[in-house]
Design a protein around this nucleic acid. Structure first.
Lengths: 207, 207
DNA sequence: TCAGATTTGTCCGTATGTATA
DNA sequence: CTATACATACGGACAAATCTG
């Protein structure tokens, strides 16, 4: 029956989701690594194959794993979750949710900027400006990476993917703004950096 | 076999997820409304009950629907989706991101403070100080709630819970510090507010 | 209180498509 | 080509919870 705790209110497939999380963490499984087969998992966790499948499907929809018929189940890269399209289809009618997504992304970006200044990071202005030529997102992804805070990087990716799938209108930002922002970071002037971001990069959120 | 399109590479449960979205849309189903039973859905969509369950479970894990034994399956408030919790749970469990947890929590708190100032929020100093008496976390949870940004609140809860489970040592912060912080927020002086937080509340992070 | 119907929860058996050695 | 391993999918069976009359 697979009873994780004393009083188990949770359902078997939820317990399995938790177990899978532990398995991934303990074995340090990375993207591309293979999970045990459904039957092995069912035996390991003392549960039915259907319950295992329900757990695996749930995680597959989230984009955390990928199952290929005849091969097995594999950890996928968090960046590849097509979950956002599915979820955004459901929450599309909620303007509040959209607004939260955009605002959160902007807050995460501000966190990154603050973190960079706080660590006295010197950024390569020229390189980053070239990346901004292609796509504004590239610039911020690089900035997030430079913080060295992986959690922040992953949070940014999630929210950024979400924002793109929601097709929110984005403000057009001039090159000069970014250059000033980067220079402020290099000067260690976080007050100025935050001002620039807040006033020139952020999208206005009507209150 | 349920073939939605001509050549379908997609799996049955994914088609069912799509169909469910249509059913919800066409019938204008709102939070609390009941979906057809699993067996009815299986018959309607010409699929097996197991496949229907896989689809329903996936949506349940996301927090988009809720199933209750003996009753049925019901639409949830989409604002309560659990995307962030689930993804973050896996990210935190897997990566060595644990070292980033504390920093990220502090960044989230700073962004919350920034958001409050940015929205010209006036906080009730006395109430919040009382909450801080019990537990410092209470104070910040209330502050995050006041931002009105659901995602930010969720992020804070996740990171905060995880930080507690890591049993990190926390700095002891005096009452006067919090009072000054709250007053700075009410003055709209975010520079001062951030300085107070940064210097007196944050734990030093060795670089 | 009670009995019967409905619904989800869980597991199992079987058949099949696919990839690999 | 064969054999094995694996996911995909369906349907049956029974348990447990809930609802209805």
């Amino acid at each position: 029956m697979l009873m994780g705790k004393l009083q188990e209110n949770s359902k078997v497939y939820l317990e399995i989701v938790g177990k899978l999380k532990e398995i991934i963490g303990e074995n340090q499984l990375k993207a591309g690594d293979r999970l045990p087969s459904e039957r092995d998992l069912a035996e390991m966790l003392n549960a039915g194959r259907s319950s295992v499948r329900e757990a695996l499907r749930s995680l597959e929809l989230l984009g955390l794993i990928e199952t290929r018929r005849g091969e097995g189940t594999f950890i996928s890269d968090f960046r590849n979750h097509r979950l956002v399209e599915i979820l955004s289809g459901f929450i599309l009618e909620s303007d509040q949710a959209k607004q939260d997504v955009q605002e959160t992304k902007e807050l995460v970006e501000m966190m990154g900027i603050y973190s960079l200044v706080n660590r006295n990071t010197t950024v390569n202005v020229q390189d980053l400006m070239n990346q901004a030529e292609e796509d504004d997102s590239k610039l911020f992804e690089s900035l997030m990476n430079m913080t060295g805070n992986f959690l922040l990087v992953k949070l940014w990716r999630i929210v950024s993917n979400f924002e793109q799938s929601l097709q929110l209108s984005k403000k057009k930002v001039g090159k000069q703004v970014y250059e000033n922002l980067l220079k402020a970071i290099n000067r260690g002037d976080w007050f100025q950096a935050m001002e620039i971001y807040s006033q020139s990069v952020r999208n206005e959120v009507e209150l």
